[in-house]
Simulated assay, not measured.
Amino acid sequence: MNRLSCLALVAVAFAASRTAVAQYPYGYGGGYHASTAAEGAARGMADVVRSAGAANLMNSAAAQNYQQAYSSYLDNRLQATDTYFQMRQANTQYRAAAAGPRPTQEDLVRYSESRVPKSLSSSQADPLTGQIAWPIVLTDKAFSDKTAALEKLFADRAAHHGQVTLDEMQDILSLTGSLDEELKARIKDYPPQQYVKAKSFLSSLAYEVNN
Rank of each mutant, 00 (worst) to 15 (best):
T104F: 11
W134E: 03
R18K: 12
G44M: 05
N76K: 09
Q170K: 12
D145K: 04
G177N: 08
T139Y: 00
T165Q: 10
F85V: 05
E208D: 11
S174L: 12
K184N: 12
A133G: 06
A198L: 00
L120R: 08
P103G: 07
Q163F: 09
S71E: 10
V48I: 09
A38K: 05
T83D: 15
T165A: 08
D189I: 00
E113H: 05
M169A: 12
A61R: 14
F154P: 04
A142K: 04
Y94S: 15
V48Q: 04
G27E: 09
A159H: 06
K188E: 15
V48K: 01
L173G: 12
Y32H: 06
L153Y: 02
A46L: 10
E106L: 12
S119N: 13
L173M: 10
S35P: 11
D180V: 02
L150Q: 10
Q170D: 15
P127E: 09
W134R: 03
S17I: 02
Y94I: 07
G29M: 07
A133I: 02
S35F: 03
V209L: 12
S178C: 09
A20I: 02
D145W: 00
Y70D: 15
L74K: 04
S122A: 13
A52F: 06
L78E: 14
V209A: 12
T83M: 05
R43E: 15
V48T: 07
A206D: 14
K188N: 14
Y73H: 11
M58P: 09
A149S: 12
N76P: 00
T176F: 09
P117A: 01
V109F: 10
A38E: 15
A37K: 09
F154S: 05
Q68L: 12
H33L: 09
A55M: 10
M45V: 03
S204W: 01
A133C: 10
R50V: 02
D107T: 02
Q67D: 13
D180E: 14
T19R: 05
Q194D: 09
Y195C: 00
R50M: 08
A55F: 07
A34Q: 07
C6M: 11
H33F: 05
L153R: 03
E168Y: 01
P192I: 00
S60D: 10
A54F: 06
G31I: 02
D82H: 03
Q105M: 08
A38W: 03
A90H: 07
S35L: 14
A61P: 10
T139K: 11
A97T: 13
S119H: 03
E182L: 11
L138E: 02
R186G: 10
A15Y: 01
G44T: 01
S71T: 06
V116L: 09
M1K: 03
D189P: 01
F14R: 04
Q193T: 00
F14S: 09
S51L: 07
E168P: 05
N2K: 01
A62V: 04
R157I: 03
S71M: 07
M45L: 14
K118N: 13
L74G: 05
D107R: 02
F143W: 04
E39I: 04
I136A: 12
A11Q: 08
E168G: 07
Y66N: 14
A158Q: 06
I172Q: 12
Y70G: 05
N210Q: 13
S114T: 05
A148Q: 11
E113S: 10
E181I: 07
V137P: 02
Y70F: 06
T176Y: 03
S72P: 06
P192A: 06
T165L: 12
S119E: 11
A97N: 13
K152C: 05
L108Y: 06
L120V: 01
Q194W: 00
